[in-house]
Amino acid sequence: MTITTTDVQTPPNASSTPAKNRAGDRNFSWATRGAGMLILVVLAGVAAFLLLESLPALSADPADIEGGEGFFAYVWPLVFGTLAAALIALIVATPLALGIALFISHYAPRRLSQGLGYVVDLLAAIPSVVYGLWGIQWLAPNVRGAWQWLADHLGFVPLFTGPASATGRTLMTAGLVLAVMILPIITAIAREVFLQTPALHQEAALALGATRWEMIRMTVLPFGRPGLISGVMLGLGRALGETMAVAMVLSTGGFTWSMVTSGNSTIAAEIALDFPESAGLKTNTLIAAGLVLFVITLAVNMAARRVVTRRQAFSGAN
């Protein structure tokens, strides 16, 4: 705390130090290096914390874990719920985001597209509690009928087995709320990359006699594909980890294949709902579930990276 300037006294021949050793450059280089290290340290710290605190749950007598059949029996329904909700969100949000982004970048008149861009960005700024409230108060009652219909007509598909939830607070509803929440991020990224498609290539397509849609298919979509995938992965990351909205909307319960009845839960929601009253081994169990979520998100990101770098020779980058 009391470092005095005498500690960093400049050597007498400072004036003759070569230009490459300027103090400003050196300090900046150290500062950036420090920031880079800090991130790694924090990440390693989080991983170490999760691992250490999970160990008791992973090594405990299966009978002592909630459910009485060990950690994996406890956690896999949560993993299923997490993945299912995120998948529903992606299936709904990706085509919508693609359409909105294309409309903004290539179809709407400039004024309208700017306004739409703002609205989409605003959607991203809404806190998830608000989405949760909207999900319970408005969405759930309004989609109840649709889930009922699915249960009545497609009930033979395991995903839609009845009885449909009377409140509408099902995994499907939670997935829809998540879809709305990840829509802005996917749209914003897709719009950015679509707008960056070189005019050169778009003109090449048009000059061959492509219609606007054909031009988009030939140039804009292939060019934007890696960006779009990153956007989808960011959205997926958010959907996997989203806690508040799911915890509020979903009427949680045990595992069921059906997406239209109450039941299931996600890792994040389970942690948020149970952690405040947990103690001892239960706390370790929840942290271990957190570790699983961490690993899933990491795996998703790495898979995304692989997809993006594949076929790089054919990308727009060269």
Partner: peptide, 30 residues
């Protein structure tokens, strides 16, 4: 534009397509 083709100042083959697909790009339209 199908009747009157155009070549631009900067070469602009489609970067996401192979040589073959570039040649066929216009044929496969419409």
């Amino acid at each position: 534009r199908r009747q009157i083709g155009m070549v631009f100042q900067r070469p602009n083959p489609f970067p996401t397509m192979s040589i073959r697909d570039n040649v066929l790009a216009g044929i496969k339209l419409n």
